[in-house]
Design a protein around this nucleic acid. Sequence first.
DNA 1: AGAGATGGTGCGGGTTCCCGCAACGGCTTT
DNA 2: AAAGCCGTTGCGGGAACCCGCACCATCTCT
Lengths: 238, 238
Amino acid sequence: MKALIVEDDQFHATYLQDALAEALPEVTEIFHAADGVAGEEDARQGGIEAIVMDLQMDRRNGIEAARTIWAERPQSRILFWSNYADDAYLRGIAQIVPEDSAYGYVLKTASRDRLKLALRAVLIEGQIMVDREIHRRQKSGASLRTRLDDSEFAVLVDLALGLQDKLIAERQGMSLRTVQNRLLSLYEKLGVLSEFDDRLTLNKRVRALNRALVTRTINLETLEAAQRDLEAWLVDRS
Amino acid sequence: MKALIVEDDQFHATYLQDALAEALPEVTEIFHAADGVAGEEDARQGGIEAIVMDLQMDRRNGIEAARTIWAERPQSRILFWSNYADDAYLRGIAQIVPEDSAYGYVLKTASRDRLKLALRAVLIEGQIMVDREIHRRQKSGASLRTRLDDSEFAVLVDLALGLQDKLIAERQGMSLRTVQNRLLSLYEKLGVLSEFDDRLTLNKRVRALNRALVTRTINLETLEAAQRDLEAWLVDRS
DNA sequence: AGAGATGGTGCGGGTTCCCGCAACGGCTTT
DNA sequence: AAAGCCGTTGCGGGAACCCGCACCATCTCT
């Protein structure tokens, strides 16, 4: 069995390689790619089904690399391994994971044992495994009421790109007023007003983006990916 | 001589510790703190003047920790060691470094030799040393025309917080119209229009924040720090 | 079947934003 | 000293935004 590690930090890569060798004796060969592009290449060439993928990388981030890999071979098993428990990553992954594919999400701060467990569960057993730390953040009490649903999130992303209401309406297939209703609830859920409110009024759009970033609802990768989406959409529309 | 390492990633910390021991035989004792708060504490207690500081940390980031450390003992020598060459970090550091203090900025991707060189130059010789990679980004041709000056940057940060023109004017001691002029040049320099322009019009404020993030002119730490500044300012104003 | 809840839509108006135009002071250049 | 350049400021108006109010369709509960 062949495994692939996609990780741009040398220290983390060697640590991971060790853990992988320990946990999975059935692995005969370990490849290593230092960025997303190289990772896609290796996965394509090597006929690899077991992958451990870092999320933050320079040339192409883990989510995008995973998307193309899964597009080519949906049966690939991918364990994501990241420093952050950003909600943005969870959403990104949820959007691209194919039906019935095995994947997992482990934090780099997890213990070696937990990492090894996840490696076995996902890469060998084909299970789905998400670090409890992350799952907790996603569903926990307070955020249940304030968690964005999918259409709100889509509007948020468009807002973050700087699109105006009319454009968002067109992209999302909503009326102008509906977009504005979504924005209303976004402002509500992101806490755009609650902090200051009485003391000062602010620009809600910018504040919404600010809050979404600070609360890790979206991140830089989200923005960059959305930008590319937008450009493709613009070409289509013409 | 005592040295302090402030770094939350265990692998990087041990690597750094080794390099430090090799490069600086005059160091008799190496302390290690895993976040900014602990780092401040250690620096205060230990009477330490030589510090290597990571920038991205959970509890308190490197720039804020450095600010309080320098506030207490301006003669401290601090080498910043970071994954990123964000302009935002450079600005943050430039704002807090005391007159005549020694500091340096090295990327984690730098070779071990370059790291050791920087350790000696900054911590022992008291020089100022900035990784060429970073310096290049800061001054290089294209960005020279588009680099923000200090007042533009200040307005950008206020914009990013979601403040309205009037508030920014008050905070910056400008007239409303002047703030708007700054915004004009911000839009220009950040390339708010240049990309699409003809094809679609966008919300310039949000787009400005988006561009500033994508170009690494500001980052999450900037936003969080600015938020605290704003809160303090609001209390003062009353 | 009727009542209520939920979510989408149109209308209208108050506010903020964006920015062209013009005037004014301080600076350098000749 | 005159001319010219640059940053700051006020004015005004068109566009976008925010959002209360009202209406309608669908869905659910009794």
